[in-house]
């Protein structure tokens, strides 16, 4: 499995366990998030700690997952490495998402 999901304080923390978030697993991410939302949890935190590389398909999957939740603040990202952050900066997607350095910090903000 490329993902692990854990519900914490009503928030689904989706950890990408694969090192590359690319075209090979992008469709699975969208499906995993869709299932979580169908299951009744609409607030999601995407943990990218293990992700060393993200390509355009990976980014596309993150954005469409975000679109599924509907609004800013309900889909946050944490633990981005430098390479992934560069993609978010280049595409200005860092302006679209709330991004936190750790899951703890993200959860704190989401629960506040």
């Amino acid at each position: 499995m490329s993902f692990e999901t854990e519900i914490k304080d009503g928030i689904a923390v989706v950890s990408v366990t694969a090192g590359r978030l690319d075209a090979n697993i992008a469709p699975d991410l969208k499906m995993a998030v869709a299932e979580i939302i169908d299951g009744g949890t609409s607030r999601i935190m995407l943990d990218l700690q293990s992700v060393q590389f993200m390509d355009s398909s990976g980014l596309g999957a993150v954005i469409s997952s975000f679109k599924l939740t509907g609004q800013k603040g309900d889909f946050v990202i944490c633990n981005m490495n430098e390479a992934v952050r560069e993609i978010f900066t280049l595409t200005h997607m860092d302006r679209l998402f709330e991004i936190y350095p750790s899951t703890d910090e993200g959860l704190q903000k989401m629960c506040a």
Partner: peptide
């Protein structure tokens, strides 16, 4: 340039 949003996404 300092980037920009992709086209067809947002």
């Amino acid at each position: 340039g300092d980037g920009g949003m992709p086209v067809g996404l947002i």
